[in-house]
Each structure stands twice: as C-alpha cells, then as structure tokens.
Computed example of a mutant assay.
Amino acid sequence: MTASPPETRASLILRLQDAADIAAWEEFAEIYAPVIYRTARRLGLQAADADDVVQEVLSAVARSVAGWLERDDRGAFRAWLFRIARNLSIDFLTRRKHRPWGVGGDDAEKHFDEIEAARDISSHFDEEVQREIFMRASAVVRSRVSDVTWQAFQRTAVLGESIEDVAADLGISKGSVYIARSRVMKRLQSVVKSRRDNSNDEV
C-alpha cells in the first residue's frame, strides 16, 4: 500500500473527535508529528523536549478538536495546530527544569521577545507541512516509475546535477532525462492536486 500526500482532509479532522479511531490518529500523527518536532526544535528545544512537545500537542488536539470544530471563528486547522505547538514549546522553555539560562530571567525574556518577533516561524510551519507533502507524494510516484526515470528526476531536479552528467551516468540521452524529469514532475503535481481537490483545511 503506497503512501498518500498529507493534506488535512476535513474527513480526517472530523474523525479525530473519536479517540478510538486509531487509523485516523495514526494518519494524523504520521503527517504532523515530524512537522511539530521540527518546529519545536526551531523554537529552541532540545531533541528529548521536542519529542515531549509532540506528545503534548497530540494530546491537546485530542482534548480540544471537538470544541474547535464547534467554533464559528475557528479559521484554518493548520493555524490552530501551529498555535498549540508554539505555545507548548514556549511553555517547555519557561519550565525551570528545561530553562537553559540563568534564574534572573533577563535572558529568557529577551529570548521570548525574539520568538514573538520571529514571524517566519509560522511560515516555517507551513513550509514543513509542504515538505511532508512532497516527501509522501514522492513515495507514491517513486513506486510508479522506473528506477532510471526516478533517478533522472531526483538527480537533476532535486540534487541539482547536470543533465549531461546524469544522462551519461544512466546511459540514456539528454532528451530522455528531460522527458523523465517532466513526467515525474507532472505525476507529483497530479498526486498532490488529487488530494487537495478533495480536502478542506478549514473544514
């Protein structure tokens, strides 16, 4: 069974209200746990604390998603999830046993002011989601094309190797590399679009 790109489908969010829906929670965690972890690390947490934040965020979603769905002003799901991840990360940073600075707190206040001013953290969260989308869409497409086709795409479009070098190494023409790259790009776009057309991030 191939992986599917991680769009937050309305149906998935609705299923999260049921704590016993193991499949929904596994899918949700697979999509967002890596994103939450990397966001926590970017906010300054150590690896072990970032792992704890992931678990706390998932627990917070489980407790709050039903109430969030009932709100008329709820906005986008990802924005809500980011706020939870951000607030819990900052909470971890303020706990004495996790605090990496002096008891006086001046450095801590300065650090949190910097976090407040770091508007790119929110966009980083979205970038991380898009990264997960690409990685999982790639898993789908990778299973549907030949190894040579995938290598031609990955090495030129992702790794930045020259068309000439890749063609020579794979034993194919430069034209074949261009065709392979175009074919994979179209399939990636199709896989992502097919899920987006049936998803609604705001429910």
Rank of each mutant, 00 (worst) to 15 (best):
Q17H: 13
Q17K: 15
Q17M: 11
Q17S: 08
Q17C: 15
Q17G: 12
D18S: 06
A19V: 05
A20E: 15
A20G: 15
D21M: 11
D21N: 15
D21V: 08
I22S: 15
I22Y: 03
I22L: 15
I22H: 14
A23T: 11
A23F: 13
A24S: 15
W25T: 10
W25N: 10
W25R: 14
W25K: 12
E26R: 14
E26C: 14
E26S: 15
E27T: 09
F28V: 08
A29F: 01
A29W: 00
A29Q: 01
A29T: 01
E30C: 09
I31W: 14
I31T: 05
I31F: 15
I31G: 15
Y32N: 07
Y32P: 01
A33I: 04
A33S: 12
A33V: 11
A33E: 00
P34E: 07
P34Q: 09
V35H: 03
V35M: 01
I36P: 09
I36M: 03
I36H: 02
I36S: 04
R38E: 09
T39C: 04
A40K: 03
A40L: 04
A40I: 07
R41T: 00
R41I: 06
R41W: 06
R41A: 05
R42W: 09
R42G: 04
R42M: 13
R42K: 08
L43F: 05
L43S: 03
G44V: 12
G44M: 04
G44R: 11
G44Y: 05
G44H: 10
L45T: 14
Q46H: 11
A47L: 07
A48G: 07
D49H: 10
D49W: 02
D49K: 10
A50W: 01
D51Y: 00
D51I: 02
D51T: 00
D52Q: 04
D52I: 14
D52W: 02
D52N: 07
D52Y: 04
V54Y: 00
V54H: 00
E56F: 13
E56Y: 07
V57H: 02
V57P: 05
L58T: 05
L58M: 06
L58C: 03
S59V: 06
A60G: 12
A60L: 12
V61S: 04
A62Q: 13
A62R: 11
A62F: 02
A62N: 04
R63S: 11
S64Y: 06
S64W: 10
S64I: 05
S64Q: 10
S64F: 00
V65G: 04
A66M: 12
A66P: 10
A66D: 15
G67L: 08
G67W: 05
G67C: 09
W68K: 00
W68R: 08
L69Q: 15
L69M: 13
R71C: 01
R71E: 09
D72Q: 08
D72T: 08
D72E: 06
D72Y: 00
R74L: 10
R74E: 12
G75H: 13
A76F: 13
A76E: 09
A76W: 13
F77A: 11
F77N: 01
F77M: 01
F77D: 01
R78H: 15
R78F: 11
